[in-house]
């Protein structure tokens, strides 16, 4: 056994795992800030930006004029409740409220992302 794993390896692996866990916890705290708005984009183009403070129901209409998805904003969270796509994956995705969270509906090319008015702390990390 001594040939396969040594004392140094155990220390090394432990340090790396602890580092990874601590790092991910720090990132979680930094990133998971409450968002202010939800930006909806259809086919890569910005469809509209809605404040999370006001409860609304957004019908997302594609270029053909048909309603493809319905997004409901309630209690500072946005959730996709209706979609025309067959798999309905976007409805199964959990409601979003934190900064940078998103719901993606690939068949209809609809992306809803939560953004915040204040700049995220990400710039500090990427330095």
């Amino acid at each position: 056994m001594t040939k396969r794993i040594g004392k140094n390896d155990i220390i090394f692996l432990a340090v790396i795992i602890i580092f990874a866990v601590v790092f991910s916890i720090i990132l979680k705290i930094v990133f998971l800030k409450q968002g202010d708005r939800v930006d909806i984009s259809v086919d890569g183009k910005l469809y509209g930006s809605y404040s999370l403070d006001t409860d609304t129901e957004v019908d997302i209409v594609n270029h053909n004029g048909t309603v493809t998805n319905v997004l409901i904003i309630k209690n500072h969270t946005a959730d996709m409740v209706e979609a025309t796509c067959p798999d309905k994956l976007c409805i199964k995705q959990k409601a979003i409220s934190k900064d940078n969270e998103s719901i993606v509906c690939l068949p209809n090319k609809v992306i809803a992302t939560v953004t915040s008015n204040t700049k995220s702390d990400i710039d500090v990390i990427s330095q």
Binding site: K3, R4, I5, G6, N8, D9, F12, L13, I16
Partner: peptide, 14 residues
Amino acid sequence: NKFKILSVSVSGGI
């Protein structure tokens, strides 16, 4: 020369 293959591989993966 302080580490075994396991550590080398993990560092490589990361």
